[in-house]
């Protein structure tokens, strides 16, 4: 791979010194200079032929974002609200979904896009509540995708009949980094955080915590057995996302789940 340069102005780039196709032409970048060591003997003779610069100014995510907009348009046309649920692995996302489906059974028509690394166990746990479930194969049994993107969700929609649904919950891949970057066409992003994960998580994964409208604080039933400092967690969350709705609950016991469900379906004031 190429050499990696970090310039005083914060610019970084890399180039291979065994390539003759890279010149340090400063014409378009005044003040751009390199501090090369004595071992830099690459060919800097520049181009044998002329070259041109093409301005692009295109967002790297534009492909994904166009697809996300199409997904959103399909949801809107069918009058379906869509929540993208993210978390770290083991935070209780599937248990919360199970509770949510149980609460909404016979009240609302729900679809699930199950994008987390697929195991038969998760699918089994979510069946039996009358929800339409679309499984995305994001793993092969040895790990797999680190996030869902808009094209994956578009593929998952083939297995859902949106015209017969009111709410779609997307279970993203358990990961606090990548899923925050990809718009999949949802109306709201939410995340499940559990109190066994430590109070500093919002500071370690600020992009994720900042990207969501709601944070579920799960496993509150374990509070008596842990040294978890809820006040400290909330202060940390406020430094990266002061406006997030917070729902303290236990997906295991069901305590506090009703307020979350009201938010998820869009009937609570902070929706």
């Amino acid at each position: 791979m190429g050499r990696f340069h970090r310039h005083d102005d914060g610019t970084v780039h890399s180039h291979d010194h065994d390539e003759s196709s890279h010149s340090h032409d400063t014409e378009e970048r005044p003040g751009h200079s390199h501090d090369h060591g004595p071992d830099d003997l690459g060919d800097h003779s520049g181009y044998a032929t002329g070259r041109a610069r093409i301005e692009i100014l295109e967002d790297i995510f534009s492909e994904n974002d166009r697809c996300a907009a199409a997904n959103r348009a399909a949801f809107d046309a069918a009058g379906v609200r869509v929540v993208n649920l993210m978390s770290s692995p083991g935070s209780g996302k599937t248990t919360l979904l199970q509770r949510t489906l149980a609460e909404l059974q016979d009240r609302l028509r729900v679809g699930i896009i199950e994008g987390d690394i697929e195991t038969p166990i998760d699918a089994e746990r979510l069946s039996g509540y009358g929800a339409q479930i679309s499984l995305l194969n994001t793993g092969n049994g040895f790990g797999g995708e680190c996030h869902l993107d808009a094209p994956m969700v578009a593929r998952a929609l083939a297995a859902l009949d949106l015209s017969t649904l009111d709410l779609v919950l997307i279970e993203n891949v358990g990961n606090l980094v990548c899923p925050a970057e990809f718009d999949v066409g949802e109306h709201r992003k939410a995340m499940v955080y559990s109190i066994t994960e430590g109070e500093d998580k919002p500071l370690k994964y600020p992009v994720m915590f900042r990207s969501v409208a709601a944070v579920v604080v799960n496993k509150m039933d374990l509070a008596p057995y842990l040294d978890f400092d809820l006040g400290l967690f909330r202060r940390n969350l406020a430094t990266v996302n002061p406006s997030a709705e917070v729902f303290e609950l236990s997906a295991r016991t069901g305590e506090g789940v009703a307020a979350w469900v009201a938010w998820a379906v869009g009937t609570s004031p902070g929706r």
Binding site: A52, I54, I56, D59, L203, R210, T239, V240, P242
Partner: peptide, 29 residues
């Protein structure tokens, strides 16, 4: 990443840079 102002310490701040993700230009033969 702490959403606060270095001047007054307030938290009413707007992110003005750091979210860029652009292909700016390419050089071609």
């Amino acid at each position: 990443f702490t959403l606060s102002c270095s001047g007054c310490g307030g938290t009413a701040v707007t992110v003005v840079s750091g979210e860029e993700m652009l292909i700016v230009s390419i050089d071609v033969a």
